[in-house]
Every structure is written in structure tokens, then in C-alpha cells.
Nucleic acid binder design. Sequence first.
DNA 1: AATGCGGGGGA
DNA 2: TCCCCAGCATT
Length: 385
Amino acid sequence: MPTDGEFTFEPTEREAVRAALLEWYDRHRRDLPWRDIEDPYRTWVAEMMLQQTQVATVIDYYRRWMERFPDVESVAHADIDEILELWQGLGYYRRARFVHRSARMVVDEYDGDFPSTVDGLETLIGVGPYTAGAIASIAFDRPVPLVDGNVERVLSRLRAITGDPKSSENQSTYWRLADDLVDPERPGDFNQAMMELGATVCTPQNPSCLICPVRQHCQGFEAGEPDAFPEPVERSSKKPMSVAVSVVTRPAAGTGDELEFLLMKRPEDGLLAGLWEMPTVELDDEPDGQPEALDAIGGFLDASVGLDPEAALEQGWLGTMTHLFSHIEMTMHLAAHHFPRGVTLRGERERPTKWVPAGESEDVAMSAAGRKVMNRWRDNSALGN
DNA sequence: AATGCGGGGGA
DNA sequence: TCCCCAGCATT
């Protein structure tokens, strides 16, 4: 196995890589809403959203966020439910809670000013080595390195680094090389150039080596197989999970034919923490058939909120859908129950429960899976049941 | 060191 | 449709 010390850039080559990369970045960088601003708050929000999430996905979330929360004080004083509402659909909802807690920390303990060093930044919850390096270099011009998935790939190819990219040995190599390379004059631009190159040129599949500004320094290219680096990581299999769900409706108050949905809030920790969902019960085993799934969700409605499925005006079956998480394959068995207006909820409720008018369903924080269920129900209603 | 935690884009 | 991508906290 290679040892950490064997991968290096000689001083001349280091200078050449810096110059080539910065020149390329100046000409080709994408115009992103969090660029060309000197506000650690904005850099921090962008980097929190960008964790495990691609640029194209983040752009609209970032814009909406800045409109609502222009500074760290506004986040610190906000309610977590409003933060989750802006975050819905972005995934990894813990990040939203980290942002909330860190904002309070900055206001309460740092007098409203973000720390400017890597160590100081890492005291914020949700800010690890990557994010601290990003904020310190981009917002504070500190000559510090950063390593994300893009940088791992670029460095693996430049130095033809084999082995598991997540191994501690390779991680330490990446950080050492990134620290060695980072341009002391323009650290933020250099770090963004590395990531931008990985995202647009040095891509996982079919890298565009012919237009790469650092091709002549790339040992992977030289070997004729840039996409052999980094070594592919083995992916863990998805855990199967089975749930029964019902879209529970009743007529809204007043005239018109508007409906209200019954929503329940998920627990404040674990999967999709604190998001709202249609009444959902997890099943121990995959149900034998539609009646068994209907039975399970019917029993849950009765037990959790005192809704007797026998009292429903209509019961429907919406079929089965699969939703994939990074670590779970969730099979959803979907029912629909329509109750008369007068129906009341009973019982000691473990979770917050509320009726939401159909027109306001967008204003409630729900996961992508929840949106899928709602769309299935809507399509089904449009067909006249 | 291993595990939990979402969702979207591209082949 | 499947395959691939991407940081941090907790234990």
C-alpha cells in the first residue's frame, strides 16, 4: 500500500497548478448567488445548504432563505417550524436545526459576529472540517485548505491516488495536499476553483480532460485512465421499511368544496424529524395484501386520534409507492379516508395533529415522500376516484 | 470506526 | 429506471 508521504507537488508544479486553476476559474466560474459577497453569514448559509447537496438544487432554496432571513439575528429569533418550512425538500433536515442552533450561538456567544478561524468556526454545530475551511477561506481570506467530494476526486486523479478515498490514510493525504496547494493570496478563489473543476470538468464519469486547465499535471490523465480514480466506494444496501399511510380528509368549514387534510408531526429526532406527514404507521412486515394494509392504517387512526374508519364517508385505495432514502427503501401502502365535517379527534395524542386546508398544504414542512403521497391522492381524485 | 441522515440529476 | 453523488454528529 502507498504511504501518505509519497504523494507530493514539487514547488514549481505547485505554482503552475495554482496559476492555471485560478486563471481558469476567473474565466469560467459560474455566477452563483452566494458569490461576490463578503458576508460570513451568507457564506455559512450557502455552505450548510451545499453539504451533500448539489449546486443546482441549492440555488432556489438559498434565494428564498435570504429573502426571509437576511441576517443571522433573524434566524436566531425565528421559530424552528418556519425554518423547516423553508428547508422542506432540501433533505438532511438536521442541518436546518443546526443552522438554527448555531445562529443563536453566534448571537448569544459571539456577539453576532461569526468566528473567523477554523477552530472557532468548528465550535458551531453542523460545521465540520470542510465547512470551517470553506467559510474561513472564502469569507475571511484565511489561507486554509478544504476537502469535499470534488476535491477528493481532483486530487486523486492529479496524483493517481488509489485505495478507499474515505480511509483515514487517504483523507490525511487529501488534506495535506490541499493545504500544500492552496494559494496564499487567493485562498477562497483557489478552493472554489478546485470544487468548480470537480463539478464541471473533472466529473465522476466522462471527465472533460481535453479542456482541463491542469491536464498536464494530472497523473491519472497521463496513465490514460483518469476515471479509475478515486476508487469506487462500496455502497451499503438499503434497509427495507414498510409503512401504511392514509390521506385523511374532511370538508373545510364554510361553503365551497374545499377539503382539509389531517396532518401529524413527526418526532423531533430521527428520520424526517419535525416534519408533517399524512397519518403513517410503520409495519413490522410487508403486508400480505391491500386489506391488511388498510386494516393497519385504520387501526392506527382509531388508536392515535380516535377516528373510526367505519365512520368514514368514503374509503379508497391509492396503491403502493416506493420512496428511496440514501439508507432506506420505503414501501408506502396508501389509503384514503374521507370523513364528514362533524368528525372529531379524540384521545391522548402523542404527536401534534392538525387539519390543514388543501390550499395551505404548501405552507407546511413536509418531506418529498409526503409530497409524493399528496400528488398521488390528487391525481386519483382528478380521475373522479 | 461505524452508522444515521434526504433528495436530485444524469446515464 | 437505475446509478451515482455528497459532510457532520452521534455512538
